[in-house]
Amino acid sequence: MEYILMIIGAVLVNNIILAQFLGICPFLGVSSKVDTALGMGAAVLFVMTLATLVTSCIQAYILVPLNITFLQTICFILVIAALVQMVEIILKKISPSLYQALGIFLPLITTNCAVLGVAILVTQKDFSILQSTVYAISSALGFILAIVIFAGLREQLELVNVPKGMKGVPIALITAGILAMAFMGFANLV
């Protein structure tokens, strides 16, 4: 039950993009087509889960026992950067087709603040390693949900006559605002 609530909370109520503002760059950057949005989402799901698993282990077994939590930021970002590189190399060897699909998104993920954000959030919330992993997966699902809906909307926006100054980023941001309003309706779910 606790986990179900956590999943609903992270996907709908505290959606990582629309309520917590993490991962806005890819949200705006890779959301012009539903296909690419799905690809980016899959890559984030993969990296975020793995990264949170690794960083919460590091936090629990290295940083806290040695009392060097002030090195947290530097450690986590290095782990994420290394992990992304590793995933890229392994995917290239094992599954070239998957690499073709996700490849271009992987390097972008290092600077996706959603990944580092979730890794730091779970340490602040004092989650156990299992809880952290569940939280990471549900956050990533929330990311996918938001970016895919948004990409669908933007595909339609392409066909609409928008005032010149509003074209591109401004209208996308305003659409995101309305989407965030819609998501606020989930607030009393949990």
């Binding site: 629309l18 401004p170 996308a172 941001l173 605002g177 965030a180 606020m184």
Partner: peptide, 15 residues
């Protein structure tokens, strides 16, 4: 709230 952030940012960029 969250939607306001997107709206204000969007209109500022447009301006």
């Amino acid at each position: 709230l969250a939607p306001g952030a997107f709206l204000v940012f969007g209109f500022t960029v447009a301006l």
